[in-house]
């Protein structure tokens, strides 16, 4: 029993250490020179542009539903005029970044995990290695950076669409003019709401890219490990996002208040 615990603990530590080393390799390779701009742009296209539809629809519906859900409650308190402010604050501070990150974890982390996993299985990564090309620089750096930059952009877009969804939601029951709705939303927002939320999305994006690459890059040989890599990439990335969010809240509260 004790030995089982020790071995599983040491196994965990091995993985943790391995991830730290992988982070080190990633960091070293960013500044090594010969940055892969072409591949980076291709990844930005795949990660960012190709996710616009999914993220946009999700964002819009979140705002729409959130409004419909809060409106009756606030109405009973006679505080209906707080709907725009409430929707804006909850979306921009918390719901937007986290839900979009989770959606991206499902879409991007899994595809990166599967792609690198299958490259590993078909020995493409080894082929790069033995030809002295740098697989970390070409495959990992570009993907992680693309995620780190694109996920915040996607979140900004989703936040904007969520506010639009909120506006549509309010207008189903009442008539509120476009400019009044947005004036009210933005008057409730502070920079201390927007900036921490924006900063944490960079970490979410990094987590998505990193976990996807790590799981794919370290997948075992054999076809089923590709599926395994994709699956565990989604699971770990989602978990990381939630953990990072909890940490971000603490740090934000410490700094801002």
């Amino acid at each position: 029993m004790a030995s089982a615990i020790i071995s599983s603990f040491s196994r965990y530590m091995e993985i943790a250490g391995d991830q730290v080393l992988f982070t080190g390799r990633f960091a070293r390779n960013i500044f090594r020179g010969g940055f892969e701009w072409g591949e980076f742009l291709r990844q930005c296209y795949i990660v960012g542009y190709k996710s616009i539809g999914l993220v946009g629809i999700t964002g819009f519906i979140i705002g729409f539903v959130l409004t419909l859900q809060t409106q009756p409650t606030l109405k009973t308190f006679g505080a209906q005029s707080f709907v725009p402010s409430m929707v804006a604050i909850s979306i921009i501070r918390e719901i937007g970044p986290v839900i979009i990150a989770l959606i991206c974890a499902g879409k991007i982390a899994s595809s990166i995990g599967a792609e690198l996993g299958s490259m590993k299985v078909t020995e493409q990564i080894d082929a790069m290695e033995v030809s002295s090309a740098n697989p970390v620089q070409y495959l990992v750096v570009t993907r992680i950076l693309a995620c780190t930059i694109m996920v915040p952009l996607l979140t900004i877009m989703a936040d904007a669409l969520a506010l639009l969804g909120g506006y549509v939601g309010v207008n189903i029951q009442d008539h509120v003019s476009f400019s009044l709705f947005f004036r009210k939303s933005f008057s409730a927002l502070e920079f201390s709401d927007v900036m921490p939320a924006l900063i944490k999305t960079f970490f979410f994006g990094y987590a998505i890219g990193f976990v996807g690459c790590y799981k794919g890059y370290h997948s075992k040989r054999g076809t089923e490990s590709v599926g395994l890599a994709a699956n565990s990439a989604v699971v770990s990335a989602s978990l990381w996002i939630i953990l990072l969010d909890a940490i971000a809240v603490q740090i934000t509260n410490m700094i801002v208040y």
Partner: peptide
């Protein structure tokens, strides 16, 4: 100095044949 031919050929899926061949030339 050492060339390695893998079982599956290990061509890079996302690139054309030309890009596959130019990959080691430009990178290495």
């Amino acid at each position: 100095k050492v060339g390695f031919l893998f079982q599956s050929g290990a061509l890079y899926d996302s690139m054309t044949v030309k890009e596959n061949l130019s990959f080691p030339l430009t990178r290495v």
